[in-house]
Design a protein around this nucleic acid. Structure first.
Lengths: 210, 210
DNA sequence: ATTTAAAATGAATCGTGATTCATAAAATGA
DNA sequence: TCATTTTATGAATCACGATTCATTTTAAAT
């Protein structure tokens, strides 16, 4: 009987924790880190302010848990596509397709995701900073690996893979930012082909000229 | 005798104002907007805290004056290159060359420039927001115009000029960010050719295939 | 040298909002 | 039901830092 109960307790704890995270994501996404107040999150989650601190050490922690989650999801997503056996070109197309879907579903969060990426505004525990930075490096390296594959397949010109990764990442972010800012609402996925054509056009080997 | 004096006064006023701006830039660049305190700026400028308010209405104003200045400088720089008579391709190369030089000279400021661009974290007077946004639009439009020129010259494929501008901008920002973050220190200009090759390779018309 | 005006100062104010904690409510077990 | 333990609460605390303003310092004018 003891165990029964404590198991439920544990489940409830996790459930509440999750609810708070969901609320926090919603509010952070809408207002950004500095402008959301703990009380906003509390209200959204329908808990008292103090309660949040039973589940999380600080506002900062709350934010970085979310931030990390998203980054991990993205990395997972990309890693999955890249692990298949296919030409680099196809892998990239697949990964971007998934990525764009993911972004479309997490539109609001991406608004801050993009601006917080560079971490300038933070006085955070070194832990967090290192964690985030690591994820970014992982992300770039993942991309770079596929670029290298492309070079080995002789379909891509032999640019520095990191530079290619950097270019692609930049283009993606830029299109996403434009999409976030823009009033009109079109699916971000509608930019996929353009983006790919420009990028691939840029890195692919030319056919022999006559 | 009256005029003499008051002219000097006016000069001094401007000189002090300038000193404060310089100090502010240094501190903002080092620490970002939210983390710099007015007192930091005051100390850097060797004035009392109160004095700053004789010259500027608020911390926010101080920041946005600087931000605007930089954006204007960049726009001016690009506009200048683009106003010459030359093929789109050359204009772009020229503009990026200047831009990279400028960035190299303003390295620290760019760290925040990049992250503040998207304005999510701000609760600012609508004035400021509109100003910044306008500059960004100008910037993109400037780029888009050259892209259109490239299309008309038949050297660029007929992508949407805005999309091309967006791609280029993204690549530039991404390389700059990587450069800012990276420990190694290489001139950002060293990435210019790679960037151009990838971008131009992507947008230029292909030679006839055999 | 003295009065008057301008400029600078930084300690005190004031608002804000993260975090805490004494108390209340709820759940548990008897 | 009642004692006990766990969990939730939100008002009070506390830290921080932008801004103000009474006071001092400096410069100007005579």
């Amino acid at each position: 009987m003891k165990i029964r109960t404590s198991e439920r307790r544990a489940r409830e704890y996790l459930a509440h924790r999750k609810e708070i995270l969901i609320a926090a994501e919603k509010v952070f996404a809408a207002k950004g880190f500095f402008t959301t107040k703990m009380i906003d999150i509390a209200q959204e989650a329908e808990f008292g302010t103090g309660t949040l601190y039973k589940y999380f050490k600080s506002k900062e922690e709350l934010f970085f848990i979310l931030f990390n989650e998203k980054m991990e999801e993205i990395n997972r997503l990309i890693k999955y596509e890249f692990s298949r056996i296919a030409p680099a070109k196809e892998k990239i197309r697949g990964a971007l397709k998934n990525l764009f879907e993911f972004i479309e579903k997490n539109r609001d969060f991406f608004r801050i995701f993009l601006s917080e990426q560079n971490l300038t505004e933070w006085t955070i525990k070194e832990d967090f900073r290192k964690g985030i930075h690591l994820k970014r490096v992982t992300y770039i390296n993942l991309l770079a690996k596929v670029m290298k594959q492309g070079v080995q397949e002789k379909t891509f010109r032999s640019f520095n893979p990191k530079d290619m990764a950097c270019s692609l990442l930049g283009m993606v972010n830029s299109f996403v930012l434009e999409w976030l800012i823009s009033k009109k609402d079109y699916p971000i996925a509608s930019k996929l082909e353009t983006l790919l054509e420009i990028f691939l056009g840029g890195v692919q080997r030319r056919e022999r000229r006559r």
